[in-house]
Design a protein around this nucleic acid. Structure first.
Lengths: 355, 355
DNA sequence: TGCTAAATAGTTAACGTACACTATTTCGCT
DNA sequence: AGCGAAATAGTGTACGTTAACTATTTAGCA
């Protein structure tokens, strides 16, 4: 059998289609870019020639000549010691920029405080004022997001959400993972690792600076799985952030619930896991979120059993490449891209530490 | 804080470095490509100018002009109904080719029969005879692989292994996953999902056409985890491929081993799972490999609990992009790239069905 | 009909690089 | 010193596209 070859050899350029349409390359280029100034008849002929010859633009030559630059504004919460989650995206942005910058796509990273609408508004003002060719953002605050969208809708500038979604808006696309499914998955995994009738604790940490909606959707997914399963599900919510307090609270729960075997931690698993002694831990399975350094440490030493990762680097990487697809390659963009929910444990964590 | 901008604006080309080195672009180009014909002194000056100005070649212009083409031979076992695993790579190859073909990288897929060294030899002959600019291959047969490597070593043509590795050879790199770790991971997962002292069965199907080495390494990793764990580990190997026979064999094992709770299937989990009745299945956890269609079906209907994926599409995609990195961007290539071992279950499978 | 403006079509100069080709310099040798 | 070959340096064209600019045609109107 003959080997399968890819790629075409004879390149068909605007010169060829000009020839076939009996015009010079001028009008061809005008047609290709909808720049007007071409009579209807020749336009038709050119269009036909393009179809006949199967013309595909040479993006190399195109980029070389035009050298139009696109700057994408990346609106992302600021990573802090409290919320190190947002650190992870950087690697993805870097990698993506390396690939697409020869094509004129660059990014401006604009951070804001996750719990501070004013700081978000400031950035939105900036983005509107400075004028970007694309927006890649976490739509944390509804009203300001709307404002940004409305401004850029008229300008036909692509806005893509990531990490969390607000459905029904005029953004071009969303890339991230499905929070509800992630809760459902966690429940499924939990179900496998504890005994049939054991109780489960849902633990969370209430902090002003967090994205509550996403967390409650995780919980919703988790609860959906166990609906009518006849398990007793307990709740523990801390709002101090103090390890001593958490430790005390959990100890009381452990004492009062002898059938408890699993702990699903909606957020801040580093705090929760640190508040559980190794002796206590040996009786429970703990599942939580996010491959931040602290959590990886806790996973490795057995304080955490499973982490579910939303692959932030990949979100960043793929997201930027979506702008490349849209702006340079003119490819159609799907309304949403869901990345896999990775199950990470002690024995496969090392493979997830890089992009 | 000012926004972080990426990418440089003022482009420095060979013209600029020529100017700074007080020569015309001719010698600059010669130096850049080591084509000789430049005196030592001017060579030094040019090199210095390149360093001073931080020149990076414009790959767009470079590609546009030279239009040198690279064809990569992909040596991969033929996918069949018996071994559908190799189907999965196609999507990855396609995706990668789409991205790199503007840069002149194309592939020729050459398939061989996995259990037939003669067919492999034929392909090696072909690859040697036709002359390729890169080889991406599954090194199934040792001697022929050596022959191919020796031929291309002198020509400085990059050879990259994928899926399985033969360490210590002169290939440029390997991309795939670590089979031993995958067995170890499976064991870890199994340990979580069955009770403390339960027995485990390791099941496999012996077929001529399979890659035995990889399978035994999986088993080795699995056994390593349970070394000294005090669990009883049973073995079941079928060499008929007949569902009836497998079913009988398993039933006997189930009958004789009341403490059996987990089944680790090294290969051919579709056959094994199909031979277990739903009633029987309710007593066991089953973990196996490969996201082939049949297995996905079985995972969805509960006949399989966990699948470990080696991400064949991703291997294919990343592998081809390695050639792009090496041949076009002249980036250094690491000796090995290990892809994550994904844990897939009913509740996250849908996110793994695409690349 | 003749003139002008508007509409349409054609020409051309880059973009940064590769490389073949030509021009100049260097240097050995008689 | 003068010649020619070898070594080195410089020039120019093309890759396919963009877009500004120029040329031509069409059409409106007095």
């Amino acid at each position: 059998m003959p080997p399968l070859k890819t790629g075409s050899n004879k390149s068909i350029g605007i010169k060829e289609i000009a020839e076939r349409a009996n015009v010079s390359i001028g009008p061809v280029d005008k047609v290709l870019h909808n720049r007007g100034g071409v009579s209807k008849a020749t336009r038709e002929r050119i269009l036909q020639a393009i179809k006949d010859l199967g013309y595909t633009p040479n993006i190399l030559a195109s980029r070389l000549k035009s050298s139009r630059n696109y700057t994408i504004a990346v609106l992302i919460p600021e990573a802090t010691d409290m919320i190190p989650f947002w650190f992870a995206h950087n690697a993805g942005f870097e990698e993506a920029v390396k690939e697409v910058s020869p094509f004129g796509i660059n990014i401006s990273i604009l951070t804001f405080e996750q719990n501070n609408e004013a700081s978000f508004k400031l950035r939105v003002d900036e983005v509107i004022h400075d004028g970007y060719d694309g927006i890649f953002m976490v739509p944390v605050f509804y009203n300001e997001t709307i404002r940004l969208l409305q401004h850029y809708k008229n300008l036909n500038v692509p806005v893509i959400f990531f990490d969390s979604n607000i459905p029904g808006l005029s953004n071009l696309s969303f890339i991230g993972s499905n929070s509800k499914d992630s809760g459902y998955l966690a429940a499924n995994l939990m179900d496998y690792t504890i005994s049939k009738k054991a109780d489960i604790l849902i633990a969370s940490i209430e902090r002003e600076e967090d994205n509550h909606i996403q967390f409650s959707v995780r919980e919703e997914g988790f609860l959906t799985y166990f609906k009518n399963a006849g398990r007793r599900i307990l709740q523990f919510t801390d709002n101090t952030g103090n390890e001593q307090v958490i430790s005390k609270g959990l100890s009381a729960i452990f004492r009062d619930n002898p059938h408890l075997e699993g702990i699903f931690v909606v957020n801040g698993i580093d705090k929760i896991a640190a508040a559980v002694t190794p002796t206590q831990k040996s009786n429970y399975r703990m599942i939580g979120y996010d491959l931040i350094d602290k959590n990886i440490q806790l996973l490795k030493n057995g304080a955490i059993d499973f982490l579910i990762s939303q692959q932030p680097q990949k979100q960043a990487y793929q997201g930027i490449k979506l702008f490349y697809d849209y702006l340079i390659l003119k490819k159609p963009i799907a309304p949403s891209y869901f990345l896999p929910l990775d199950i990470v444990m002690k024995t496969n964590i090392d493979y997830y530490r890089f992009l």
